[in-house]
Design a protein around this nucleic acid. Structure first.
Length: 438
DNA sequence: TCTGGGGTCCTAGGACCC
DNA sequence: TCTGGGGTCCTAGGACCC
C-alpha cells in the first residue's frame, strides 16, 4: 500500500524569526500580516495565551503588552529563503514530492519508510535549518493531513511523527475529531454536514457517498473517498501554471479621492506586472476592484469591479497602468469611503502564445474575435433581456461575415481564429436604442 | 411558432486553503 | 481608530449551437 507523508513546519513564520534571533526562543512571538493588520503566525507560547489565529492585532494589543509578546511584521523574503532550505532537504529524501505551500510538502514514501525514518528526517530538518516540523503519514493526502494534525496536537506522545493506519486505532482517532478539522471542510461545509447529523471525522468517513455527493458535490465525494483510503487528490510534482496575479492593499484610513486610489492602484499594477514578468508570463486580461470597509456595517457598501480582455498579451507596466486606470475611473463613485483597491492580471499566457506581429505576408494579425461574445456583452451592458440592443436576426440586414462566401482567405489573412462550429451569422442592431444607451 | 436533448462557453459567486 | 493578501476549484444558470 503506497503512502504519503505530509511534512508541515511548526508555526513557520515565528520559527523563522527564531532562527535568526535566539532570544525569541521560549517566549511568546507573533507575526503580523502584510499590513500589520492581523496575527498570522503564533509561537506555542502565544497560542497558550489564547491569541487566536487571524485575530486583528488591535484586539490583542492588551494581551500582547501584558505578557511581553514579541511582535514582528512579516518578512516574506526571509520565509521564502528558509522554505527553500527545508524543501531541498526533503527533496534529497524522496523521489517524488509536492511543495504544497511555503511551509508544507507531501512526500511519496517508499515501502520501507517508517516512523523511524520519519523521526530521523524530522531531526535532520531541525538540525540543518533550525525549523521544527511535524510529519503525518497516511494513504491519501487527507489522511496524511489528519495524521499530521494528530502528531502536532500530541507532540510529547508522538514525537511530532504519526502514521494513521486502517483499523480501530484510526477510527478511534477520527471519532475524536470534528469535521471542521478535516482538510477541505470549512465552517460552511461543517455546518451543512452537521445538518445531516455528521459531526465527527468518523461520521463523515462512514457517510453515504450518495448523500455526500448530493449536498457537498464532487468536492465532498472526493474527500469522502480520500478518508477511506482512495486517492482522489493526486500529488502534483510540477506546480501548474499560475492563472492570475493579484495585488491589493487595504488603506489604513478610508480613502475617498480618486487621485489617491489611482496612486495606490499604480503601485499595485507595478507590483503585479513585475511578478508576471518574473514568471515569464503575459496578461490577457485586467481586472480592477474597489472595496469599502466591510466591517463598518452602518456605512454604505460598494464593492465594484471591472475588467477587460486584452487584444494581445501585455507585460509592460506602463501599458497595464493605462488600462487599469481607465477601469478604475469606470467603477469609481464619489461619496464612498474606500478601504481597498486592487488589480488582478489574468489569463496569463507564456511566450508560446505571443503572436508575431507580422504574418501572412506582412499583414498584421488582428486580435481574436468572438462575435457572439461581443454581442452578448454589448447587450448585457446596454440593454436588458427583453430589449436587446443587438439581436441575431435574419440574414442580410446587417451582416458580419465570419466565414465563407469566398472570403476565407481574407479572413485568414486578418488572422481571425475560427472556433470550430463558427458560421456566418447575422445581427441586427437597434441603432436608436444603442444611441440612447450611449 | 413549436418541438427537444446534448453539448460548450462564459460569468458570478461560493467555499476553501495557506 | 485599527480588523491581510493571494490563490484555487466547483457550481449554477444563461446563451447559444447542432
Amino acid at each position: 500500500m503506497s503512502r504519503l507523508a505530509l511534512v508541515d513546519c511548526n508555526n513557520f513564520f515565528c520559527s523563522c524569526e527564531r532562527v535568526f534571533d535566539p532570544s525569541l526562543i521560549g517566549v511568546p512571538v507573533v507575526v503580523l500580516s502584510n499590513n500589520d493588520g492581523c496575527i498570522i503566525s503564533r509561537s506555542e507560547e502565544a497560542k497558550a495565551l489564547g491569541i487566536p489565529m487571524g485575530a486583528p492585532w488591535h484586539e490583542q494589543k492588551e494581551v500582547i503588552r501584558k505578557h511581553g509578546v514579541r511582535v514582528f511584521s512579516s518578512n516574506y523574503t526571509l520565509y521564502g529563503d528558509m522554505s527553500a532550505r527545508v524543501m531541498s532537504i526533503l527533496r534529497d529524501e524522496v523521489g517524488v514530492m509536492e511543495v504544497y505551500s511555503i511551509d508544507e510538502a507531501f512526500l511519496e514514501l517508499e515501502e520501507d519508510f517508517g516512523l523511524e525514518e520519519a523521526r530521523k528526517l524530522r531531526s535532520k530538518v531541525l538540525r540543518w535549518t533550525g525549523i521544527p516540523v511535524c510529519i503525518g503519514i497516511g494513504e491519501t493526502k487527507m489522511l496524511a493531513k489528519l495524521a499530521n494534525r494528530h502528531a502536532k496536537k500530541n507532540r510529547e506522545r508522538t514525537g511530532g511523527v504519526f502514521e494513521i493506519r486502517k483499523g480501530e486505532g484510526a477510527e478511534k482517532l477520527m471519532a475524536e475529531v470534528g469535521c471542521e478539522a478535516l482538510w477541505g471542510v470549512g465552517k460552511n461545509l461543517a455546518r451543512r454536514l452537521a445538518g445531516l447529523g455528521i459531526n465527527t471525522a468518523l461520521d463523515f468517513k462512514r457517510a453515504e457517498p450518495r448523500q455526500i455527493r448530493k449536498s457537498l458535490g464532487v468536492v465532498g465525494e472526493r474527500m469522502l473517498r480520500e478518508m477511506n483510503g482512495t486517492r482522489c487528490l493526486e500529488l502534483e510534482e510540477m506546480p501548474p501554471d499560475r492563472k492570475g496575479v493579484m495585488a491589493s492593499r487595504s488603506f489604513g484610513a478610508p480613502v475617498e479621492a480618486l487621485e489617491e486610489l489611482e496612486e495606490a492602484l499604480a503601485n499595485h499594477v507595478a507590483r503585479a506586472s513585475e511578478k508576471v514578468r518574473r514568471f515569464g508570463l503575459w496578461a490577457t486580461r485586467v481586472d480592477v476592484f474597489l472595496q469599502t470597509n466591510r466591517f463598518r456595517k452602518g456605512e454604505p457598501q460598494y464593492c465594484p469591479g471591472a475588467g477587460v480582455d486584452l487584444d494581445e498579451p501585455v507585460q509592460a507596466t506602463a501599458n497595464l497602468m493605462g488600462i487599469a486606470g481607465k477601469l478604475l475611473q469606470r467603477i469609481y463613485r464619489v461619496g464612498y469611503r474606500y478601504k481597498k483597491v486592487g488589480v488582478m492580471l489574468g489569463g496569463l499566457v507564456n511566450e508560446s502564445c505571443l503572436q508575431p506581429a507580422l504574418e501572412f505576408g506582412g499583414i498584421r494579425k488582428e486580435p481574436r474575435v468572438d462575435i457572439d461574445r461581443i454581442v452578448d456583452r454589448i447587450n448585457r451592458r446596454l440593454g436588458d433581456r427583453k430589449n436587446p440592443v443587438i439581436t441575431r436576426g435574419s440574414m442580410g440586414v446587417s451582416k458580419i461575415k465570419m466565414k465563407g462566401e469566398g472570403s476565407g482567405e481574407a479572413v485568414k489573412a486578418r488572422g481571425w481564429r475560427m472556433k470550430s462550429g463558427m458560421r456566418s451569422r447575422a445581427y441586427t442592431t437597434n441603432w436608436s436604442q444603442l444611441a440612447q444607451a450611449g
